[in-house]
Design a protein around this nucleic acid. Structure first.
Lengths: 183, 183
DNA sequence: ACGGTAGGAGAACGCTCGTTCTCGCGTCAA
DNA sequence: TTGACGCGAGAACGAGCGTTCTCCTACCGT
């Protein structure tokens, strides 16, 4: 098994555990058991748990935004693309094992103690907001709308996570539709 | 010093520490140092750390919703009262030491491991949503609006916490104003 | 075949922290 | 006065866990 494949296996296990149970309640030993990657290898690839956490968030960030963009690409009409963001959120919320936004959760857990994790959360949220701003701009709509859509999406993520329901996506979509309609 | 006063002192210290640094990174010893209440007393009043955490969240819930309602009471016109919620959020976000929503943070930290904390978070959010629904209802507006305003408020809390800025409150207020205007 | 190296399993180490225990002191009723 | 009691200070205990170390096995080039 090559080093990249082992790294993937470790990150796969870390992601499932960290996302599902929180970072602090998962030990390096749990990651070893779940991944089959020995502690020695784990520490060769990630010299500390915090670096494993950072790698987990970074890889998930790329995948999350990639999946969102891929879904939105299906739509051609600029306003439809904006609403598609909320449709995609609804699909995500309905996936088995959904437990809220990984970055919001990580911020609650580690934001006060790990400046690097806090920075990654801010970077992820800024990237998501910028993406919304690009959709708004492409539709020729005023820039202020992006911030409002962003707040709706964040509120939907938090609420879906806490209540374990996909419905906030539909509520946010409807609010977004009303905001679009006035423009 | 009577038992109730000691309990208050303990909760005051616990609240400041738990809210400011997160629950897991604060030890019972830290609470003792900050409050001046001995460990023996602490464990008499709260037989376990989890119960101290629950008491912290419960007392904060009452105060938080009380302060919000008190602020909103100042306004007579039903639609103004709805917008006043977002004004109050902006004031809260600007307070020194603001570190986001205590319940969202607690959910990220403990939601996966403590069913009781998760339940308290859900109860707090439900109560806040119900309060918004009562304002919407009093204004004779459709019930669906309450969910949309709730998402805006939640998104603003999360974003203000992560970015350490009070601005999301103004953005959410503007979105709320636009949603109200169409009705 | 064989010395050297990489790697796995898991023990070991050291620290943190929730919780309990010990000890000594002051208080108060009889 | 005295003895039981409450309490604070802080040591002690035990578990969990991040990190490192030991030991053993398997494979490599020569």
């Amino acid at each position: 098994m090559d080093s990249a494949g082992i790294r993937d296996r470790a990150l796969d296990a870390a992601e499932e555990l960290f996302y599902g149970r929180g970072v602090q309640s998962v030990g390096m030993d749990d990651v070893r058991s779940a991944s089959g990657v020995s502690l020695k290898r784990l520490y060769q690839l990630f010299p500390s748990k915090e670096q494993l956490v950072e790698a987990y968030l970074e890889r998930r960030d790329g995948r999350w935004r990639g999946r969102l963009a891929e879904y939105v690409e299906q739509y051609g009409e600029p306003r439809e693309r904006i609403l598609a963001v909320f449709d995609w959120l609804g699909r995500w919320f309905g996936e088995p094992g959904f437990r809220g936004c990984a970055w919001i959760n990580a911020y609650g857990e580690l934001g006060a103690t790990s400046a690097r994790v806090a920075g990654q959360v801010r970077a992820h949220k800024r990237a998501f907001r910028d993406y919304l701003a690009s959709l708004v701009d492409a539709a020729g709509l005023p820039g202020a709308l992006a911030g409002q859509l962003f707040l709706l999406a964040e509120g939907a993520m938090v609420t879906a996570g806490v209540t374990r329901s996909a419905e906030p996506a539909a509520e946010a979509r409807e609010a977004a539709r009303l905001l679009l309609r006035t423009l």
